[in-house]
Simulated assay, not measured.
Amino acid sequence: MTEPSAQEHTTTQHSSANVEVDTSYENDSSYGDELSSYSTSLTSSVLDYRHENGRRYHKYRDGSYLLPNDEAENDRLDMLHELCLEVLHRKLYLAPIGKPQRVIDLATGTGLWAIDFADSHPQAEVIGCDLSPIQPTLVPPNVKFLVDDIESEWAYERDPFDFIHARYLAFSIKDFGKLIKQCYRSVKPGGWVEFQDWDGYPYSEDGSLDDTGFQRYYDEANNAFEKAGYEVRPGPKLEEWFQDAGFVNIHVEKFQIPHGVWPKDKHLKKVGTWFQAQSEAGLEAGALAALTRYEQWTKEEVILLASQARADGRKRNVHALFDFYIVYGQRPES
């Protein structure tokens, strides 16, 4: 991969032409135990979960993250991991990182990215941090997980990283600019930071999304998240935040992600299948806390909204798309 000059920024648009609809489709060994995998003591506030509307939520820093952390949600996060691997043709990252010695995965979720990275980079010490201790108990010897709030002040600068990775933090973070500046301070000179994230509003190229239950779901849910102070469309803003933090050699790639199996292109059809599977698994979970806590919706009203979105999302003539961005940058050597 050829690196751009220090102040050059590059943007790659994937599938910039309209996504063609498939009109023929009819839609009907060295593993440690649990204690050694965590670098912080798990206090009762970490393990004591909040239960609400039939879902389980984190209790540590209660309320700072509005999606569940139960088994159903963890399964959805694992599907998202597979989706990203499919989008990137089995790559875990795009930054030209070389052979890093110290790596952190922010908001690691179920920890699959950190585990896969540790397996493929045995020379690296890999840390995954999250608000919830939901990661597997059997992990490679060079990965460990800690419970932490990445929007609080870090202590990581004392031993900076070669590579900092973060993925789909939309709907989770209130101040991306501050977080990315924190990353800049915590990465070594010459080190890389990569964020992979969404523009959380769907669209269609043919108007087929207009006035659908699918569109209404995102209008209502996203509005609730935004009113609560969360950033729901960080993807298109990442480049500016990287520039403001002081990164150079910034590279931007944008991918169109279809919802469903309607594209004619085989790769996009497979990507769309994964995206629809995780989406349908997460429609209720994604809106329950935001709408019931901040907009006074009832559980039943959220379930109905999600059901209408699911039904319209399955229609053969609804061609929803989301934009997914990957942005990486380097801290200057000096």
Rank of each mutant, 00 (worst) to 15 (best):
S64M: 12
S64E: 13
S64C: 08
S64K: 14
Y65V: 05
L66H: 15
P68V: 02
P68G: 02
N69T: 01
N69L: 02
D70Q: 09
D70G: 04
D70S: 06
E71K: 09
E71A: 10
E71N: 15
E71T: 10
A72D: 12
A72V: 13
A72C: 09
A72N: 12
A72P: 05
E73L: 10
N74K: 15
R76P: 06
R76C: 09
L77D: 07
L77W: 04
M79E: 04
M79I: 13
L80Q: 12
L80M: 11
L80G: 07
L80I: 08
H81K: 13
E82D: 15
C84V: 11
C84G: 07
L85V: 07
L85Q: 06
L85N: 12
V87L: 04
V87A: 05
V87E: 01
L88T: 07
R90D: 10
K91W: 06
K91E: 15
L92P: 06
L92Y: 12
Y93W: 15
Y93N: 13
L94S: 10
K99I: 12
K99P: 03
P100D: 02
I104A: 04
I104L: 11
D105V: 06
L106V: 10
L106F: 05
L106A: 05
T108M: 04
T108F: 03
G109F: 06
G111Y: 01
L112H: 09
W113F: 01
A114S: 12
A114Y: 02
I115P: 12
I115D: 08
I115A: 03
F117N: 14
F117Q: 15
A118I: 08
H121L: 03
H121W: 01
H121S: 02
Q123D: 14
A124D: 04
E125Q: 14
I127C: 07
I127Q: 15
I127F: 15
G128S: 02
G128E: 01
C129R: 05
C129I: 06
L131Q: 10
S132C: 01
S132F: 00
S132L: 01
P133Q: 06
I134G: 00
Q135P: 00
P136E: 05
P136M: 07
P136I: 10
P136K: 04
T137I: 08
T137L: 12
T137R: 13
V139K: 00
P140R: 04
P141Y: 06
N142Y: 05
N142G: 12
V143C: 04
K144N: 06
F145M: 13
F145S: 13
L146P: 00
L146W: 00
V147H: 09
D148P: 04
E151C: 08
E151R: 12
S152E: 14
E153R: 06
E153H: 09
E153G: 07
E157R: 14
R158D: 11
R158V: 05
D159Q: 10
D159N: 12
F161K: 08
F161I: 03
D162Q: 09
D162C: 05
D162R: 07
